[in-house]
Design a protein around this nucleic acid. Structure first.
Lengths: 208, 208, 208, 208
DNA sequence: TATGAATGAGGTTTCATTCAT
DNA sequence: CATGAATGAAACCTCATTCAT
């Protein structure tokens, strides 16, 4: 136990178990939804006993929290790669939109459904999501807008509302898609480009 | 029974009961969420017995379906008043956005949370919502865009995607607000105007 | 519901159910002990569904509390009949002792075991027992001792400790009996007389 | 293995472990009660792993049995020191009472609660307690009474019932105290003297 | 039609105990 | 011998739904 090698091995095993359980949870949650999923379902999927789940997660909600934790969601909100200095507005915007739109496409938006569904109803989850996912997304975007604004490239009004509108558009489209909108499903991959144009230029016809 | 007067009286009473129960359901769902609400809660709020609920609604989910039914949600998506012929784009857009944003503000977005949360997880509910709420909203908007497009007032690309993006923006902002975003809460009433501008003009600085 | 006849009927039915459940609980608790008894056991014994128990008792502990409630335990501690003015000390003492010793004999001291066992471990139960059973017993006895003391019939020292010693003797003998002491079992019925003598005269040989 | 020195060393180590575990068990049982205590609690307190407990004790109940075993409880019931030949009745009685009353005072009667609570519900434990604690106590006391009786110092009736009444008084007072009786708590230390007088002389006023 | 007592399936969670390392 | 991760049975309790009155 005091053997550091052993200890670290234990830790790694524990981390692996956590991952194993979370993978199972994601899979089953996505299939059946949070409330319809029983611990037994997850245990079965993870090929473990019911009780074992509770060695690694305090309760069912903690599994959802676990799914939101950085290592798993980083991919979705990490926008550091966007920081290339002289990318043009349209490209950056497109990448910003592309990121979450495609991340949730993987499992047919099932995980998006589960997370958002529960977030709307669970205070703690809501706060975590705001901190760990939405917040970083907004801050990342805001930095860009501010940068462009300072460079005189965009009109400088209401940056904080603007970024929320853009993020909202992304969330909202995920929502519409999750509700089974056929049109979106058919054209999902063209969305980043279309949305980027819309945001940059608006719907108004360019004056000659 | 076959007396038409009696029959219609019955119907009216039944309709009143339904309304009474739905009102109670809305209230309690908004307070405690769908799953945390028991039939007993609703019965108590409606001043009825548990069993009576089941005379008017098949099960708990049917109550949520009931809440989405036209008479109750029409207000939210009815845009007939927008049909005034020569309103300018910005005004129409502003009205289009104002409508749902304010409708859900009444009860602090609690009903929005409940409905969306459950919609994301319940197939039947999802379809109904798409038919009865989202669909009409999209169609109404699309008609406008098409009209303007024909008049050469907006660029004619991807109207179906554009209206979805606009609707998505609205839904997404409701979502962000529901997650407790302080910035949105503080500036909620200015949103219709800001969003309308954004959508019409984009973020790009107007060329001189 | 507002019909008083109906209401009272309801109340009577409810009281009957409570009694039915408590009877079942007493029986099963006495057989298997508190912890080893499941709600299902009690429900089965009462010929009801599990859930029904919870309509009448908040939880398992409340069943034990119910058993201690006055209507059921009054018999054990009611000493009003003792208040006859000029009964001699020995007779009164004998009656005082006889009462609880015989009350618990009925079911072979099984209920005594269950109640005391749980009382020792459960704060709330302990307080209730002290209030509803032990307290009255002590007060009743104390009144007598005080009466006799004022009449110069007993030495007036430490009445409150003396009555506790007497009550303790009774409790302790119930405990020893509950532990399976054969000697006590064989002579249980002679105890009231023997104890009364001991308490009144002590063990010391009377001086000639 | 067959080396007697080694074997005895092993035995001593094992005995030390047993003691270590029992000490931990006593401590935790007294704090939380038998059922509320988990093996993990005890293991933590003993600074061992859960599984190790099972190398030394067959199961949780065996820990309670272990607590009752002679080396640990002898102190409580050992009355050999009372065997001084010509002590007067009152002094001996006082010492006899003093012994258990003070032994359990140490930990605020918590251990008494735990042991008695479980004894009342567990057959095996009950028998062990009767053999190892109650029996010796009764036999020791009986020897005295018989001695005094032969010397004509006490009335010779029902010695076996009398000693049980005395022991019962002690147990019963421990019980009352364990139930939170304030009066007893305040005067606990004067009990041995008061009780000894009561038992020797009874409550009756001495005839002049 | 309205009632609300009764039902009972089913979920979460705990924890004594085992056993491979 | 010591460890502690894993097990899985079993318990309490909730609550949607039914149905006799």
């Amino acid at each position: 136990m005091k053997d550091p090698v052993k200890a670290s091995l234990q830790e790694q095993l524990a981390a692996a178990r956590r991952a194993q359980i979370l993978d199972a949870a994601i899979k089953v949650f996505a299939q059946k939804g949070f409330h319809a999923t029983t611990i037994k379902d997850i245990a079965r999927e993870a090929d473990l006993a019911d009780g074992t789940i509770y060695k690694y997660f305090e309760n069912k909600t903690a599994l959802l929290l676990g799914i939101l934790e950085p290592p798993r969601t980083r991919a979705q909100q990490d926008m550091s790669f966007l920081l290339e200095p002289d990318a043009d507005i349209h490209s950056v915007m497109k990448a910003f939109i592309h990121q979450p739109l495609m991340a949730f496409k993987k499992d047919n938006f099932e995980l998006f459904k589960v997370i958002v569904s529960e977030i709307l109803v669970n205070q703690e989850l809501r706060e975590r999501f705001h901190q760990q996912v939405l917040g970083p997304m907004l801050q990342g975007g805001e930095a860009y807008l501010r940068h462009w604004s300072e460079q005189g490239m965009i009109s400088p009004q209401n940056i904080d509302l603007t970024i929320r509108a853009i993020a909202g558009m992304i969330l909202g489209l995920l929502l519409e898609q999750s509700m089974g909108d056929q049109t979106l499903e058919a054209q999902w991959d063209t969305l980043p480009d279309t949305l980027a144009s819309l945001i940059v230029n608006g719907i108004k016809k360019e004056p000659l």
